[in-house]
Amino acid sequence: MLHIKCPHCGMRSQNEFSYGGDATVKRPELNKEISDQEWDNFVYNRKSLRGKHLELWQHLSGCRQWIKVERDTATHEIFKTLKANEDI
């Protein structure tokens, strides 16, 4: 069971969180003209890296904040956790 440091609440067990996927995927701005490729990259295409992976989690059974977690997808080592509005 992972041990995740919520930047708002401190160390908590994984079962308080829910996963939210790749945090590097940026939603295109509203009303902006973009190509199909750009839109598909946002909706469907993923790098899903082996190794360091910046991802979203929500502290669902805690403060309900979405947070960013930098985790190794092969070893599950967590290097860093950030608030949703912080950048690595």
């Binding site: 939603r27 929500q58 669902l60 949703a84």
Partner: peptide
């Protein structure tokens, strides 16, 4: 609810 929280906290803070 999670959907709304996601857009408010991550996409359109």
């Amino acid at each position: 609810l999670s959907h709304l929280e996601y857009y408010l906290q991550v996409v359109w803070p």
